[in-house]
Nucleic acid binder design. Structure first.
Length: 259
RNA sequence: GCACGGGUGGUAGAGCGGUCAAUUACAACAGACUGUAAAUCUGUCGCCUUCGGGCUACGAAGGUUCGAAUCCUUCCCCGUGCA
């Protein structure tokens, strides 16, 4: 598509932003790019946490650069939240994460966090998932660092964009996922994870990166046998694919093609 | 052949006379998503339902009991030990 329409690609993938996460994240290779410039790949160290707002900032810069060159920006990827962060203004509260506040909040139980939020910001409390720690912590972080309730977000479109989604039967996807996994495994994905750890990416961090990085690191730590790792990872990837569909299905602007 | 141990929902595995359609975990299905988003979290999960309940279920068949997944008998499978 980029070749046909004089475009450049902007990746919307929350793992391909990290250097060294190549096979496991399915990062496109130089050769596969066929001369088409690709953006927002390898922009962060895997030791750091790259956020949706970092993504929005970089991707918007890329969009305007591409437009200035008279070319078509093509955003491509499966991280729905990142795509929204790029396409809409006001998708996240403008409050950077605060390690100090988080450290304090981490000591509280989920119930206590919910309790505090209900006192400090009843409005946000009413709509939040009260069992989701990560959400509660973030909401409290916003309230505590601004001294104000969590702002209502407008989600204003920033660009006029055409959204295209590829839909295929789940069985078909499942089959392709398995083939893809085995291909990655034989392409040295385990080695890749081992290398990342050697270079200082902690086990905890690898776990948090999810999917291939999570399960392979568990295998490397001998918490899982090879077969357990492969089958649990396969399941996790399939579940993730379904979660992605849940996200995209609710976006009524997407035009679905089967391809 | 004898002696033990065991057969429970898609899977693993609790329950060991009533409060059991059956703890829990996983899988499956659906969903959420305010700077970790490949993350995090929620709901449903035997069948039917007018959501009150009804029905069929814990290897099989009988039996004991007001009442059994839980006790007894026989049978069929599985594992271990002795032959």
């Amino acid at each position: 598509m980029a070749l046909e329409r004089n475009g450049e690609v902007i990746s919307a993938d929350s793992r391909q932003v990290y250097r060294g996460l190549d096979i496991g994240s399915g990062k496109i290779t130089k050769k596969e790019m066929r001369g088409v410039p690709h953006h927002i790949l390898d922009v962060s160290s895997p030791k750091k946490i790259f956020t949706a707002s970092d993504y929005a900032r970089l991707a918007r810069k890329a969009v305007s650069d591409i437009l200035n060159r008279g070319k078509l920006p093509i955003v491509c990827g499966g991280t729905g939240f990142y795509i929204d962060a790029l396409l809409y203004d006001d998708t996240t509260a403008p409050v950077p994460p605060s390690p100090t506040i988080r450290k304090k909040l981490d000591k509280l139980s989920t119930g206590e966090l919910a309790q505090r939020l209900s006192e400090l910001d009843p409005d946000r409390f009413a709509s939040i998932d009260t069992k989701n720690r990560a959400r509660l912590v973030r909401a409290l972080e916003i309230v505590l660092s601004t001294g104000k309730p969590v702002p209502k977000l407008k989600r204003a479109p920033r660009y006029s964009a055409e959204k295209i989604g590829i839909m295929r039967p789940m069985e078909d996807l499942d089959r392709r996922i398995e083939l893809r996994l085995d291909k990655r495994l034989s392409a040295g994905m385990i080695k890749e994870v081992e290398e990342l750890h050697k270079k200082g990416v902690s086990w905890k961090r690898l776990y948090d990166l999810g999917l291939e990085y999570r399960y392979i690191s568990l295998f490397l730590r001998k918490k899982l046998s090879y077969d357990e790792m492969r089958s649990q990872l396969l399941t996790a990837i399939r579940q993730y694919a379904r979660r992605q569909m849940t996200w995209f299905k609710r976006d009524k602007e997407i035009r679905w093609i089967s391809r």
